[in-house]
Structure formats: C-alpha cells, structure tokens
Design a protein around this nucleic acid. Structure first.
Lengths: 286, 286
DNA sequence: CGATCAGTTGAAGGGTCTCAACGCGAGTGG
DNA sequence: CCACTCGCGTTGAGACCCTTCAACTGATCG
C-alpha cells in the first residue's frame, strides 16, 4: 500500500499512451512501446498477433535462476526487480535494481545460460519475449530492434553508474549516491523525488554498495542525524537535497592524473594532491 | 614489443576466418564478422560497400570524450581500451577494460552524449559504425543486428563481472579475481593464460578495483610473496593457478540468506554465519 | 505467545587510506 | 653526453573507517 511502485498509475493501455507525451520526445522505452501497442487481453497481445506474453510475479518470486538456460528476454512493466549473483560460498551479490522500462536477461544473450538470477522485490509484471522470436521481431519491427538496443544500452549505462556508487570510499557517500539515484529514477517515473519507499531491504542495499548491512544502518542514521534525511524503516524522505548531493560528491583522493593532452599525447599530470574531508558528516552535525 | 595484444596473429582477413573454427561454434563476435567480410582497403570496406571505417589509435589517444555527442559505435579490432568516468573533482574512475570483440560506446545509444570516455592503452584499432547508419545496417543485415545485440550483451555481462571484482572485501582478493579475469580473456584470445603483459598501469587497476594504487602494489607483492605470482612491473606470470583461484573465492561474510525457495516463496535463511579467513595470504606464506 | 527475522546500536580489532620517502626509467635540454 | 625532471612503482608508518561479533527492539506469523 505504501509502496510507490505498486500504485503506479498505468492501469489501462490507453491511459498509458497519453502519459508518454512529454517524457522523452525522441525515445520510447520498450515497456511504453509494448504497452501502447497491445491492448493486452488474456496475457496475450492479440491485436498485432505478437508472440509477447505478460507474466506477473509476487514478491520474492524468481524470474530467472542463476545458471538456468536463457530462453527469454524480459521487459519490466511494473514493479521492482533485483539482479543478483550467488557465490559458491552462498554470498549473495546484488548487481542491480530494475524498474519499469528496463530489460532483464539481456546479459544472457551472449551465452546459453543466465549468468545472473532475477527476483521480484514486490508484486511485478514483465513482458516476455522468447529468444527464438527475437530475430523475427527484429526484422519485422525496426522499432522493436531499436527499442531493444536502447534498453540494452540503458542497462549498461546503469551498470556503470553502479561502479560510480561503489567507487566512493566512505560508506555514507555510497549511500548518499544510491539515494540520489533512486530519487532521480523516481522523478523520471513522475513520482515524488523527495519521499519514497524502498522496496529492497538493508541487506540488499548493503550488497549493492559493497559494505556490511550494519554499515548501511549506521550510514542511514548518520545521514539522518546530519539533517539530510528522515528515515523510518524503508520510508525515506530527503530533507536537504542540495546538501545530500553536495555530500555525495565527495570522492576518493584525487588521482594525480586528471587531464589528457588535447591531441595524441600521453597523459599529463597535475601535482595538487587534494585531500578529502575525512571528517565527513561528523563535521556537519557538530 | 613485449605486449601481447600488439602481436596478436590476426593479420589477414582470410586467416582470420580460419581461426574461428573451434572457438565458439554458435557465436561470432562483431570483430570477427567484420574482419571476415571486409578485405579492408584504404580504411574502407569496399567489398560490400558497407559504411564501416577502420580507425587506428596510438597509446593514450582518446576515442571518445566524456560528454561529447555520441555519433558512432565502435568495435575493438585490436589493442586495449579503457572506459572511464572523470568526476567533477578530477578523480578518474575506470569502469572497464575492453579488448578485441567488444563494443565501445554502446552505453551512449540510449542518450545523446557519451556518459563515459574511452582511451586507447596501446596502439589499437576499431571499426567505426555511425549511428545514422545503424538502422539501415540492422535492417539489411540481420547478422549485424544479432552481432550487435550479442556485443552489447557481452558488455553488460562484463560490467557485472566487474561488480563481482569490487564485491570482495580484501584488496588481495580483488586483485586475484582481476588477474583471473585477465587470464581467462587471454585464453579466449588464444594466448598464454599464465604469462601476460598488463597494458594498464597500477593506478588504473586501482581505480577499477576501487582501492588506492599503493594498495594494489602491496597486493601484488603479497600475492608474489605467497608464491602465487611472479611480478615484474607490468609483466605477470601466474605460478599457481589453482591456488590463485582458490584464494579468489574468498568472499565477504556470508549473508544469512542463501537459497531461495524453489517455488514462489519468500527467502529461506540458514543460520551458519560462516567466517572469512581474515588471516588471508599471511597464513599461506608463514 | 514463542519463534524468527529485519533493523539498530555498541565495542573491539584489523585492513586500508593517506602521507612520505626512495629507486628507477624515460624523455629533455643543457 | 649527461644532469635534470617527471612520473611510475614500491615500501614504510600512523590514523581512521569498516568489519565482525554481540545484544536488543519491534514486527510478522504460525
């Protein structure tokens, strides 16, 4: 009930089309494309006789298992998913959280089996495109092919943003960056970027950020103590967005190398070492 | 001269075709596809009149600048590239190293400008495909479309392997995993997986692994002291591959959650906390 | 109502960051 | 030709942040 993703206003297909008016004038996500095309009836797109089904999942349900043969590609229609990788030791490494418009299982296209597992974090639904239909769809529908390319590209760009998350040294900075990412996704989905409900647990956030789950708790408390956030379990309210962004900008000690020579040369160095404010948040609150 | 990547035996196109016999029976990389098709003459594929050019870069030269308008897609033909992101503070975060067969600039497909910069680490060459030609190529050549999808998929899979690298707590484990990745790439390229030359510096490795460059040096020394490696600047020889792999398997403290219920249920937990050997390499050498 | 689990907080220990110094090789200009 | 500079790589020492173990609270559920 309090989760944003389950209350997303995209119930009927006709309403979905009208919502796309001012979002991205040049780009359409695959979910929008399929939602607009299919007045889906009985989990089947009969309108254009496309071999695209809709599958609904409950919270905790797995969409794909790690190592399972990859038979289909999925596009998130509603809800939130986590992409993760389970080690031989049993440690679960979360690689990404996916929301509407993103493709799932794209990393399995270049191999036979899923390198990563996918699970729903809440009640969700996806479009299912069989791999065996992929070539036919690409040939018959250039728009599908382009949308698929863009979805894959977005997935890669998101994955690289993740590296930026984990690149920060301080755990509080990682969490701040993570929350800003969430906030920006919320804004893109026409939802409040200041107040939202996290559909994932502390442990999953910790895994994504590459820290211990206790550290995530402490970082939440620290950000709240600094007056940047208001945290109540999984409900987060950003009180000082500018302050949060400023804090998220803290980086590792600057590498001595920064600029590349304008033409053809080797790297040039600059000598200012720079130091990061190791005091961090504790300076803001005292 | 001592660099492997510049001595890769893929000089003529006809030889390149024969080399693909036993590698991947079902999949062809874009670089192989283009190399096999084009008896490239004058940096242009005149054979099939494809609008695909070849561009050569020297070490340190930039293929794309961060924030520049994305006009083309690139496929690595030879050499090594680094994909990186420069922070506002000037800190340079390395996101990936790319070798033959990988696509560059794929993450820019879903937007207008390059989110990441790309630079050559050594003398390299790429195939250049203009974005304006992408639709035409996809329609006229289904093989191109499929190869592009696979290249993007591979890029995403690699990016997620990176998250596995940075997920390890101990810096020595991160380096061990990194070296194993390099080794596996070498094997895929038909080169010695035990002895190779790193085309990137310590600082770039450190940035990729998310640690300080001094720590990378120390980790190299530690792995060498343990008898797993022999290191001479950028030349690495793996002495004990099994030992290295075993060591790379060390993970963060196991999350209590490990297995998902086979059907539809929530997560099940197991109570064995498990502890990682905090002694690490120091136990192996003493 | 006992059990289990998510989340929080505390305390101790260790690993990594940072600053610093050194050797070394390459490129440059005297 | 060689001193000089610059950057890379290595190693040492101290401070600090995070990990780990532990205990507690509150919520959910059978």
């Amino acid at each position: 009930m309090n989760s944003f993703a389950t209350t997303k206003p995209q119930s009927s297909a006709t309403a979905g089309v009208n919502e796309c008016e001012c979002a991205k004038p040049f780009a359409t996500t695959m979910a929008d494309l399929l939602d607009a095309m299919g007045a889906e009836q009985g989990d089947r797109f009969a309108a254009l006789q496309l071999p695209i089904a809709v599958r609904r999942l409950r919270a905790g349900e797995n969409l794909a298992h790690q190592g399972a043969t990859a038979e289909a590609l999925y596009f998130v229609r509603a809800g939130t998913f986590k992409v993760f990788h389970t080690d031989v030791d049993g440690y679960e490494q979360v690689l990404a959280f996916a929301t509407r418009g993103e493709v799932l299982g794209f990393d399995a296209l270049c191999m036979e089996s899923h390198p990563t597992a996918i699970a729903a974090l809440e009640s969700s639904s996806v479009f299912v495109v069989l791999r065996s239909d992929l070539m036919m769809l690409s040939v018959k529908m250039p728009a599908f092919s382009m949308a698929l390319q863009r979805a894959g590209s977005l997935s890669l760009a998101r994955s690289r943003e993740l590296a930026d998350l984990m690149a920060a040294v301080a755990s509080e900075v990682r969490l701040a960056r993570f929350l800003i990412h969430i906030s920006q996704r919320m804004a893109a989905a026409r939802l409040s970027p200041r107040r939202f409900h996290l559909s994932m647990g502390r442990r999953e956030i910790a895994s994504l950020l590459g820290v211990a789950n206790e550290t995530v708790s402490r970082s939440f408390s620290a950000l709240a103590l600094a007056g940047l956030l208001h945290v109540a379990d999984r409900d987060v309210e950003i009180l000082d967005m500018e302050g949060l962004k400023a804090y998220a900008r803290s980086t590792r000690r600057r590498a001595d190398e920064s600029l590349v020579a304008p033409t053809g040369g080797m790297f040039t160095r600059r000598s200012t070492p720079g130091r990061r404010s190791t005091a961090g948040l504790r300076a803001m609150v005292s």
